[in-house]
Amino acid sequence: MIALISSAADWFLSLILLYKYVALFLISYVAALALPVPASTTVVAAGAFASAGYLNFPLVLLTALAANVAGDLTGFFAARRWGIRALSSLGLGFLVHTSGFSTLKRYLQNFPRLIIFSTRFVTEAGPAVNVFSGVTDLNTKLFVTYDILGEGAYVILYSGAGYILGSAWQDHIGVLTRGVFLIEMVGITFIVLRMFLRAYRTHR
């Protein structure tokens, strides 16, 4: 399984070297849309290739940012337009009326900036938040603003790390994933602590 994932990652790296910015755009777009492709690894690698002079660093930043934002907005607007209808046609329309859906909607309405910004760093969570934001009719201007800010920070962090690490990027990529996990944990702990304090005050 690990060998399979590793060879898939190698294939994506080859694509970046063969088709450069077109491949970087397509991989990042598809990952932002929903499909599980190693977008973060390819963005770090693109930064490292720019460090070697093979790619242009500002173009890497622009391509990755444009692709990520385009993928996020596709998910957001598609869910806004067809989300409820798609759920109903799949026989899952009842989900919208469940308490779990209402709770998630309330969290998104209470912390939209934090949730949108922080989930840009998590390839698995980002697409789900895009779709959920679209289905729950979140303010478009708010979504677009924090999506661009979050994706901008994500692209600068990942490709910048690749640029600094250069040819040693594969040996030190772990520090980046742990750093992002740390940022996520700060965000989650903040939300849970706020919930805890609110419940404590209400109970008292």
Binding site: H172, V175, R178, F181, L182, T189, F196
Partner: peptide, 30 residues
């Protein structure tokens, strides 16, 4: 509900401390 929240808060704090430790360990190695 309060007990669940206390458990969740403690879990988050433990995970936060562990991830901070791992990150700074890696950063020192770098």
């Amino acid at each position: 509900y309060r007990n669940v929240l206390i458990g969740l808060t403690l879990l988050c704090l433990i995970l936060l401390a562990a991830s901070a430790y791992l990150f700074f360990n890696d950063a020192l190695a770098m």
